[in-house]
Design a protein around this nucleic acid. Structure first.
Lengths: 187, 187
DNA sequence: GTCTATACGCGGATAGAC
DNA sequence: GTCTATCCGCGTATAGAC
């Protein structure tokens, strides 16, 4: 055969990573398959060798992105609760994250579009989210607290990205940072 | 003249309200002008008698929706801080709001798309948001706290809408409700 | 002010050559 | 597996009749 074994799986992974970044940046509906494949250096016809439809791509992107987010949390080196929290707050609530959705968390970028997607997408999303919430709950005490923590972070980046300049963006994310630090300090 | 004075202004208001609902439900990019005007009972050609472009419509929708949100806060009858908070939490964090974006807050629905819009849109958004934050700050003590409050609410509804069933939706919004109640209780 | 008709581009998806 | 070519529908926006 002309391609080494495992080539297809690797190519799919590559397309997935590039598509994920482009979709987080431009939005799922707004970004066409032509654009996605151009970013990957192939033509739109090649897309369907790897994904059955654009909706299948969305599911694959969600699974990949949320897996990546969970891996990110596992890299937090701190055992002390306060230090662990500060590390996560700095990592998520910073201007670079606000200004670079293509390499950031999928939730502020695609949350609303997942909400408008079909049940297959939402069910997959729920399953992947729950894995993350279970992980966070071990640090934050309960799944309930983990959900509230996530909602605060996601809402802050979502709102900050809608702001026109760095100053107002910083105001929004710093507010949530202070609020969360304060809420978890008194336990 | 064939139409009474003020007819155009009224018609524009009507188109704006109907378009706002449809866009919050389906997304700004994903909803075409044909669809919007069909919902209003006119054809797409009529749209341009009232708005210069789809982007101008987005700005008008944002201004209208955020004005409506501020009016909603003003209807809160409570003076006691705890009662005021409970009233707002119940009003925003409930399943009906999660399941009816067309009549709900514009922020979870269009936040990400505003983030991808041009500077004109974002600047308008910032100005309108600041009016609301100033109002909330009088209740919550500071603009910083107001921002954090908004981010938690918006993130909760955004995440809940991405969930596939009522149970998981309720889990998300209840978590934020408890979290916020707890955070403001200890002041 | 609203209608119909239309220009023109881009959307998702498929067929067949290589 | 990827390419080119193509189908068909929908997107924004405009022109001109009524």
């Amino acid at each position: 055969m002309r391609y080494p074994p495992g080539h297809k799986e690797e190519k799919r992974k590559e397309l997935l990573a590039i598509s994920g970044a482009a979709i987080k940046q431009g939005g799922f509906v707004a970004t066409g398959i032509d654009t996605l494949m151009q970013a990957a250096g192939v033509t739109s016809g090649a897309f369907y060798s790897h994904f059955a439809s654009k909706n299948e791509l969305l599911k694959a992107v969600i699974a990949q992105e949320l897996l990546h987010s969970r891996k990110g949390w596992q890299k937090n080196p701190h055992t002390d609760a306060t230090q662990w929290l500060d590390f996560e707050l700095e990592r998520y609530l910073n201007l670079s994250h606000v200004r670079h959705p293509e390499s950031g968390c999928v939730l502020p970028s695609l949350g609303a579009e997942i909400g408008r997607a079909d049940d297959e997408v939402k069910t997959l999303f729920e399953q992947e989210m729950h894995k993350g919430v279970e992980m966070l709950a071990q640090r934050l005490g309960s799944e309930e607290t983990a959900w509230a923590f996530i909602c605060q972070l996601v809402g802050a980046v979502l709102m900050a990205r809608a702001m026109p300049d760095k100053v107002s963006q910083a105001t929004v994310i710093e507010a949530s940072k202070v609020f969360l630090r304060d809420a978890f300090k008194r336990n």
